[in-house]
Simulated scan of single mutants.
Amino acid sequence: MTETDYGRRRPLLRVRGRSIAWLPPLLLLVGVILLDFNTGEHFRIITWIVLVPGTAAAMCGVWTTAAYSVLALVTYVAVDSAWPAEYQAGFGDFLLVALGGTLATLAAALRMRQERQLLHIQDIAETTRRTVLRPLPSGWAGLEHAGVYLAADVDARVGGDFYDIQPGPHGTRVLVGDVQGKGLGAVEAAAALLGTFREAGYHEKDLTTIAGRLEIRMLRHRTHTAALGRADGDRFATAVLIGFPEDDPGVIDLVNFGHEPPLAVGPHGVRELPCGDGVPLGLADLAGGLPPVHRVPLAADETLLLVTDGVTEARDRPGAFFPLAEEVARAVRADPDRTEPRRLVRRVRDGVLRHSAGRLEDDTTIFAVRRLRGVPEREGARGVRQGRGRRPELPGDAG
């Protein structure tokens, strides 16, 4: 669904892009007329025409429903008058059809009002999602990437999962994480962490400093929510922070805050990178400090696959978890080109939905990233350094 779809009512029945919601009430109208003429005089069903505006109220707009109400009333008079006087349904049924049409029109107006309110709420949720999970340009900072976010609540469209890429003068940084809990409180925490990451990821040279800034931001956010008297003052977040060093394109730096371990997916197989040897963001005082920075090799033809626990904890009907590594390894063996980020993300997404039969118990994020072939990562960050002379970087800037 595109951004322009929000705030606009979409007809229930469409054929080749055109609405046919008006067709079922019309067919019902014709059917009642034919049945009335083909049944005996002692069995009149013309009164059933009151179902026509009722059907229109459930499927059509207000003016279409009103038109069917008038049409049903006129048709009732015409068909009833065609019978001899002793077999006519009479004025009482005329009032029933008129009252049914009026109530159907009012019901259509109430339904349309509720639909507009729902569309407005969805529009707000989509705007919030785009604010938290900002669109990333293709080839951003010399990285090829693809990501998908699936909310467990399909109407909410937004949750506590987050990911972003931040280029800067010290290299490109990637953050993928999952805030504990659900609802707007989780969205607020995710937005706070992303705001800090976008600033620190640009300015700070060391990944350890960025990790410290994220930990402090989580603590400050918890303090603020607790001061407001909210019950989510102990919220935390798992995350993976990755740095792509400019001076060594064959490695990455990685800090894992108790998150699912990333997978390095290449044409020759799948390997698991360092697991969550640290505690989640907001709980560093329990472990006596921040998790360490790991420097691990990453070949030019390998893609980093990062997921939230909505993927690894997806269950099928018997209760078995989704076998992420095995599924990806099987796909790569069948087609080595599946290491391309978009195809890899699509494969995992389809596998999770198939495994869980579409029943997601938690928000699900799948994010894949790798260096662009033939484009050194330092060239992706060069434009950022050159742009520093144009105007100062402000908090919250998209880049």
Rank of each mutant, 00 (worst) to 15 (best):
H259K: 06
F91V: 14
P280R: 06
G92S: 13
G310S: 08
L51E: 00
T64L: 09
V328C: 04
L96I: 14
V255F: 05
A287V: 01
T238Q: 04
L324K: 04
G229W: 03
L119M: 13
V384M: 13
R347E: 14
A329G: 10
K205V: 13
T223M: 14
V307N: 04
D161L: 01
L27V: 15
G399R: 15
T4P: 13
E272V: 11
A300Y: 07
T105G: 08
A58P: 10
L34Y: 11
F94T: 06
E86K: 11
P169C: 03
L51S: 01
V30Y: 09
V179W: 03
R330T: 15
V251Y: 06
V50H: 10
L35T: 03
R198E: 02
H221D: 05
L254Y: 05
R235Q: 14
L13P: 02
E260T: 10
L290K: 04
V255A: 03
G389E: 11
G387A: 15
L194R: 14
V255K: 02
A314D: 11
L254A: 03
V293R: 11
V158N: 06
S81C: 02
V32C: 06
D277A: 11
V30K: 12
P267G: 08
V293M: 07
R9A: 11
L344H: 05
A239G: 07
A189Y: 08
L263D: 02
T47Y: 10
M59V: 15
Q88K: 14
A191S: 14
R295D: 01
L99W: 14
G243A: 08
G288R: 10
Y149V: 03
D232W: 04
L27T: 08
G383N: 05
V176N: 05
E126R: 13
V154T: 13
L360E: 07
G168K: 01
P274W: 01
L241N: 04
D232N: 10
G266V: 06
T196A: 13
G351S: 11
R130D: 08
D350P: 10
P25G: 05
L95A: 13
V74G: 02
A104R: 04
L394T: 14
T2M: 13
A264H: 13
Q114S: 08
D277L: 11
A186W: 03
D253P: 00
E126S: 12
L304S: 03
A186M: 06
